[in-house]
């Protein structure tokens, strides 16, 4: 006498799939939120944000730039916890599960959505902190302000970066055989992109990951009279790292289009976390188009 389990139907009712996604997502979400690494990284980012205080001895705009970089530890841990989640796909029992890999991948992505929510909360805290301090300092006389606040486009960047962090963590967690290999790779990716001055040139900045404004645009030679520049320009004078007068350019539109570029990049990167098939092809195609639009629009916005 033998017993054989009936074969699962190839296509399931939509409601059943939705229920499976919800169940897997809830289980993954519980694991993600219980990971202390996530909260340690978030705490480090908030600590970095709080420790940025404008100083009379700082170079023009230092506090404005440094406060944008404080999101780095949060991005690293978002990638790490997502990688841990997607690495469970590599457990030997996973291929035998009665749920297709594509469905499981979607469930894991849904479970990662609250991580983006944490980034939204972080961006809100960042906006509040800047207002609480009365603004940050940008530029030098005669083009200077002590009340600079991040534009909405700049505040959107941590959120878009969190989406990218989820995508990067998902790919590395799914594709690398050992979780321990993921740690140095994620570290080097996120901390190198935080060396923002390497990617701040007006030609490079549309392709950068962590875009830190202001962008410096040539305004005139070192001998130029700064009073001759338009009165609304923020300026940076010749100094240790520059032999010219530069316009310190902050743009809301640039920030928004950079977020578009990041979302497109996230789709392209995240495509490799899902199994081969229509979903991956769709993500690659749509992500490429969105990323290209984001880059072109950024060049159009830059003066």
């Amino acid at each position: 006498m033998s017993a054989a389990a009936p074969a699962l139907p190839v296509s399931r009712p939509r409601g059943l799939t939705r229920g499976v996604v919800r169940a897997v997502a809830l289980a993954e979400l519980r694991r993600i939120l219980r990971n202390p690494v996530l909260w340690a990284g978030a705490a480090l980012s908030v600590w970095m944000m709080w420790s940025v205080v404008p100083d009379p001895d700082e170079w023009a705009g230092a506090s404005y730039e440094e406060i944008a970089v404080s999101v780095t530890p949060l991005l690293l841990v978002i990638s790490l916890v997502t990688a841990v989640s997607f690495h469970r796909e590599r457990v030997e029992v996973a291929p035998d599960a009665p749920v297709r890999e594509g469905t499981r991948a979607i469930a894991r992505l849904v479970a990662a959505l609250p991580l983006v929510g944490i980034a939204v909360a972080y961006a809100g805290l960042l906006a509040w902190r800047q207002r609480d301090r009365g603004g940050l300092w940008l530029g030098v006389e005669p083009g200077r302000t002590t009340e600079a606040l991040f534009t909405a486009g700049e505040l959107a960047q941590p959120v878009a970066l969190a989406v990218l962090a989820v995508a990067v963590g998902a790919v590395l967690g799914r594709r690398l055989p050992h979780l321990v290999s993921v740690v140095p790779l994620l570290f080097v990716v996120w901390f190198l992109v935080s060396v923002y001055w390497l990617f701040g040139h007006e030609v490079v900045t549309p392709f950068s990951v962590l875009q830190v404004q202001p962008v410096r645009v040539h305004a005139g030679p070192a001998t130029a009279d700064p009073l001759g520049f338009p009165a609304h320009w923020l300026l940076e004078g010749p100094g240790e790292f520059s032999g010219q007068w530069s316009r310190v350019f902050v743009s809301n539109a640039l920030g928004w289009w950079h977020a578009v570029w990041l979302l497109g990049l996230s789709a392209v990167v995240g495509a490799f976390a899902v199994p081969k098939g229509r979903t991956r092809r769709w993500m690659l195609a749509a992500g490429s188009v969105v990323a290209a639009v984001g880059v072109v629009a950024q060049y159009a916005v830059l003066p």
């Binding site: 740690v183 140095p184 080097v188 190198l192 060396v195 390497l198 040139h201």
Partner: peptide
């Protein structure tokens, strides 16, 4: 990744010691 970033750093007129610090920690982790 480190080589690419350091090549970019050659074009920027800023100190790259922090990149080497990242390199030290990353290589140690590897």
């Amino acid at each position: 990744v480190l080589v690419i970033v350091l090549l970019v750093a050659r074009t920027a007129q800023r100190p790259s010691d922090v990149v080497m610090a990242i390199a030290a920690a990353a290589l140690a982790s590897v």
